[in-house]
Simulated assay, not measured.
Amino acid sequence: MKIMLCCNAGMSTSLLVQKMQKEAAARGMDASIEARPMNEAMDHINEADIILLGPQIGYAKGDFEKAVDGRIPVNVIPMVDYGRMNAPKILDDVAALLG
C-alpha cells in the first residue's frame, strides 16, 4: 500500500513518516510511506492508495477529495495523533479506511 502524507512544507511530517515506516515494518505491513508538501502532492495523487493530510492543512480536504474523485480515501490526521507522532494509531486509522 502507498500512503502519502501532505503538509505545508514537509518538515514535521517527515519525522512522522519515519515513525510510521518503523511501525509498519514491526507489523509486517507492506507499506510505502512518503511525505510531500501540499503544492507538490496534487501532482502525485494517483500514485497513492490513501492520502493523509496534516491537521494544519485540513482545510484542503475538499480540494483533495475533488481531485481524487472518490478513487482513494482522503483523511485528516487528528491533531492529537499528529502532535504526539502516534504512528500506531495513524496506521490503525489507515487500515480501517482501506478495509
Rank of each mutant, 00 (worst) to 15 (best):
K2W: 15
L5T: 02
L5G: 00
A9D: 04
A9T: 14
G10D: 14
G10H: 13
S12L: 07
T13R: 03
T13L: 06
S14G: 10
S14M: 15
L15D: 13
Q18K: 07
K19E: 02
K19D: 01
M20D: 01
Q21H: 05
Q21P: 08
K22I: 10
A24N: 01
A26V: 00
R27G: 03
G28L: 02
I33G: 00
A35N: 07
M38Q: 09
N39S: 11
N39M: 04
E40N: 03
E40Y: 09
A41N: 06
M42Q: 05
M42Y: 12
E47G: 05
E47L: 12
D49W: 12
I51A: 12
L53T: 01
G54T: 08
G54K: 00
G54I: 04
Q56S: 14
Y59C: 13
Y59P: 04
G62C: 10
G62E: 14
D63K: 10
F64C: 10
K66M: 03
K66V: 02
K66N: 12
A67W: 12
V68N: 04
D69K: 13
I72W: 05
P73F: 03
V74C: 09
N75E: 14
I77F: 00
I77Y: 01
P78W: 10
P78L: 11
P78M: 06
P78S: 01
Y82L: 04
R84G: 02
M85Y: 07
M85T: 00
P88I: 04
K89S: 03
D93R: 05
A96I: 11
L98D: 10
G99Q: 13
